[in-house]
Design a protein around this nucleic acid. Structure first.
Lengths: 235, 235
DNA sequence: GCCCATTTATAACAGGGTTATGAGATACTG
DNA sequence: CAGTATCTCATAACCCTGTTATAAATGGGC
């Protein structure tokens, strides 16, 4: 997997440096000269390895999707699929909250060079899982939704369609929160995200009581997780 | 209101040209030299009137919010507040679908110069309506939500909190759809947005039957609207 | 050990935002 | 009405950033 000890090293280090500079300096820090200086090479490295800044930014976006998927994969499955959905949401939100600049690029927002990293069609017809790259994140939501339907918590429905509803709501909340609405800190979670999750669960067929119970289960799981792993996540 | 017959004219024409070029050429068309050439002035106009490209882009973003609010304001009030919410959602989505580049800037996405047009806190504590600028769009959702609560369609709840849930879901759907997910054309509306609306309405206290009925009412209103006014909207 | 391909540094080019400067127009003032 | 101050705008340059041409250097394959 690593036949070139130094060449790919530069490529990887460029992406790492890009994410690092992005986090601390925002989109305007994503410059060929800054990146090159950061790892001690010339700007040519950007062109031999990526062909240009646009492709490098694409790679950064892909890396963001990969990180998001990796985080969501850590959420695991319990016997309460609705609680798992809440945990996925909490994790999704946490990832964006910790690295807003990275995920702004990942989601195609504020692309530095006027370049977008849009994906492509996802649920093209009705339920195609033609996830082009990084849409494994969506798959996690789909699987949890599927289990919620099978467990009788959600009404029988197209799992992709139901998952897309959840994803829309979650993504919208995260996006608006990252834009500064919904206040700072955790208040958006308590005041909006959790009520939103209960609203969706109930609307999809769950009872208020069970949805609220799943909320508490997810909260407990989250506290246990942050207690064990500190709060740095991976990376 | 217009003591300077020509001076403010240049300012307005710059913003108009910016939106025009943005629509056809994307974010990379938002350049001082292109804007100046478009209206037949020099790039200095950008600096005498705005101080720089960043402020001009901010003004474009503000204009986008204004247009969105104006569109939503056209969605009057009927005796079915839930149908009104669906109509607001349809309008919100339509605005973004017609001018995706403009609203990408408006929502702080893909800001051309690495600049963001973020607003600030909105529901700071629990229900402050300290909308800084252009958050009148959110107010339309709040008012319709309030009427839905008063009409007994939604359970008693904090109107800002409930409206924020609706806004999150709507904004997430629109954002993801604009990024190319959910397919092209109207299929995202039928397959995801409308089911999402029903899910939310039911989750907030409405019955499935009444929510579906409101969906049909909103559809009919939309058809009537597009039949009367063509499909160009304002602008 | 030699040759080819890849990688890299240097230096220049091109296209952006921005600024210095002065001319022109406009509005106030006596 | 003349003069002056202010605002607006065009020209031209400056700086920064992405990109490319070129050649040196490094490393793998025979």
């Amino acid at each position: 997997m690593s036949p070139k000890p130094r060449a790919n090293d530069v490529k990887e280090r460029l992406v790492e440096a890009a994410i690092r500079l992005l986090d601390v300096g925002g989109p305007e820090a994503l410059q060929a000269r800054k990146l090159a200086a950061e790892i001690g090479v010339s700007t040519m490295a950007v062109y031999t390895h990526f062909g240009g800044m646009a492709a490098l930014v694409d790679e950064v976006a892909r890396t963001g999707f990969g990180k998001l998927s990796a985080w969501l994969a850590e959420v695991g499955e319990t016997d309460d699929p609705v609680a798992d959905i809440f945990s996925l949401a909490r994790t999704y939100r946490q990832a964006v909250a910790e690295q807003p600049q990275l995920f702004a690029v990942t989601f195609g927002q504020s692309a530095p060079g006027g370049k977008r990293a849009t994906l492509s069609d996802l649920t093209t017809e009705e339920g195609r899982e033609a996830a082009p790259e990084g849409l494994e994140a969506f798959d996690h939501i789909v699987r949890a939704t599927e289990r919620a339907i099978e467990a009788g918590r959600f009404r029988p429905a197209d799992k992709y369609q139901a998952a897309a509803q959840l994803w829309s709501a979650l993504h919208g909340f995260v996006t608006l929160e990252a834009s500064g609405h919904f206040g700072a800190g955790e208040q958006g979670i308590d005041h909006i995200l959790i009520p939103l999750g209960i609203t969706l669960a109930v609307g999809l067929g769950d009872t208020v009581e069970r949805a609220e119970h799943s909320t508490e289960a997810a909260k407990a799981a989250w506290r246990a997780k942050t207690r064990n792993a500190g709060q740095g996540g991976n990376d």
